[in-house]
Design a protein around this nucleic acid. Sequence first.
DNA 1: GGCGGTGGTTCAAACGTTCGCACTGACATT
DNA 2: AATGTCAGTGCGAACGTTTGAACCACCGCC
Lengths: 347, 347
Amino acid sequence: MSTIKDVAKAAGVSPSTVSRVISDHPRISQQTKERVRGIMRQMGYHPNAIARSLVRQSSFTIGLMMSRSAEQALLNPFFPEIIRGISTVAREFQYSLLLSTASTLEQEHTECLQMLRARRVDGVILLASRTRDPLVEDLLAEQYAFVVVGRVPGRERVYWVNNDNVAAAREAVNHLILRGHRDIGFVGGPADFVVTQDRLEGYRQALAAHGLRFNPQLVQHSDFSRESGYAAARLLLHGAPGRPRPTAIFAVDDVLALGVLQAAHDLGLQVPGDVAVVGFNDIPLAPYLSPPLSSVRIPIYNMGQEAARLLITVLQGGQPSVPQIVLPAELVVRASSGAEVLAAERR
Amino acid sequence: MSTIKDVAKAAGVSPSTVSRVISDHPRISQQTKERVRGIMRQMGYHPNAIARSLVRQSSFTIGLMMSRSAEQALLNPFFPEIIRGISTVAREFQYSLLLSTASTLEQEHTECLQMLRARRVDGVILLASRTRDPLVEDLLAEQYAFVVVGRVPGRERVYWVNNDNVAAAREAVNHLILRGHRDIGFVGGPADFVVTQDRLEGYRQALAAHGLRFNPQLVQHSDFSRESGYAAARLLLHGAPGRPRPTAIFAVDDVLALGVLQAAHDLGLQVPGDVAVVGFNDIPLAPYLSPPLSSVRIPIYNMGQEAARLLITVLQGGQPSVPQIVLPAELVVRASSGAEVLAAERR
DNA sequence: GGCGGTGGTTCAAACGTTCGCACTGACATT
DNA sequence: AATGTCAGTGCGAACGTTTGAACCACCGCC
């Protein structure tokens, strides 16, 4: 493997000159540049990124922390998509991506700090947000550059990129209300997740906007698994004193919606005739379910891009124009909530 | 950020001693080790991986090349799974993962070589295999350490990890034959893909084993998209002179099988009554299709683990016991091919 | 009392870059 | 003739580690 010194020797110049040729320094004559470049090509020289990083005190690498959170169901192509977005921007700015996976929260915590402390990465993007995340606290305390994908409530100085869960949920529920539904069930994830809270807020706002009463009995929580979605839906669809049987269910994740569909089927209920269903995340299989599932599509790729842009801006010493970015989501109406016959009319 | 020198000064020893404490060198007294470790903790010292890499002439990092090949449909959780496998082993051996994505083959080619030449990674794992891959040729020519996930035919000295596509396809088709099917359609990917060839070979072997004639007319190719699977299935299911209407279809990918199911539905054919369907890869949605799709489950996670083990062995100067690893796949029979009523009896 | 052995430590040279500063001519200006 | 300007290049010190070789004190042994 040839070094800058070998090239310098062969070209009859000093290593510094070769270095300046590499960085296209203006004070090197065009003639020298061309000659040195020729030699570099000829010798098959490629600059050593490690050595450069050492002296530049920067690895030009972004750390990517992906944990196996409950939210990341296998069905969800969240990771490939967001990585694609991040990667596009990173390459544009000549940054590399260091990937770290973790199976537990503690592991995620230590691995993440490890990358940063060992100076292997200049900053990190966290692909999971939790309420009161101790990792976030540590990152702030040690003053590392980082961006979170997902909202971080309460911490004003944290950079994050999120989709507008409140608005999206509001739109989804609004859509159901406009189709004549008045009793709408809500199937959420764990109650302490920010996403659950935000989507529940959107649900409430939609109800309020139409003068509908919020009935806590129509709200069920789950652990994001299909099974728990199934259980929640069965409970809701059975009805109870004080709890009307909902004619529509809004699930905060398509995997949950999958369970809801299954429950409806098992109870002999037609979707959307007897109960309409809207999910969230628009997983790729949504169009292929029977009936095809209405869902909220979130701009994962764009979120990745924005997260990367935000982090790189910070790393390059810039001040991001906005520390938090909220991207709009889009409701995709399919048959599961788009029946020609309104549920209300059917009764 | 404190360095090894700062620690040395504070501990009243030389930097070399601190270095040897870090690597737990036997010639350093227990007493000194403990004292130095205390100081390191107290000062919040963490070794600089970049500097270490420079002198050790190794980055202890594995490059991961993921390209947007046609095969990697968004439906397929291939990447998260295989990365999880690779990552597990990498962490075990203290290796980091550098991720590079590419949208074109040329980009993949240059990015991959770039990582290696810049000494950013010690070796790479290629997450896509193609016949006569120029990247593989270059990697061989420049003597870089690499492992391919997927079979690389013709190159004996390439390390790779694959699932046994021939055997798996044979088993799948065998299953259909045992259920009474004699005219079995084959929907493959592009003809020059190794996976297609291998799975077609398995198909032929199964037929041969039961003394069934191979009918080239029953073989259709596609580009791995759902649409092309649909088109291929329509063609097959229409029948033609010299081409009997198949009572079963084996698709080399579940996304293709999705198209096949759709085609059957549109033609008013019952699955599995009129036509049985078996797919490949066992995507997570397979159980939720109607009918649930029979498919071949491949051990993606294990393949990732094996690939990482192989590469790390090579990087550490070892000689892998076997340069190529073939892992078994498993047929998962579901309703799409598992009807109680055999298709043959129904006619 | 010289000698070898050994446990514990230090010295100093790498590893391959970058970059502030100094240097050298050539030419222009006073 | 002395000085200034400027393009073009080189010097050398970093950056934070690792590691072979050298060193030193101490011990026991003949």
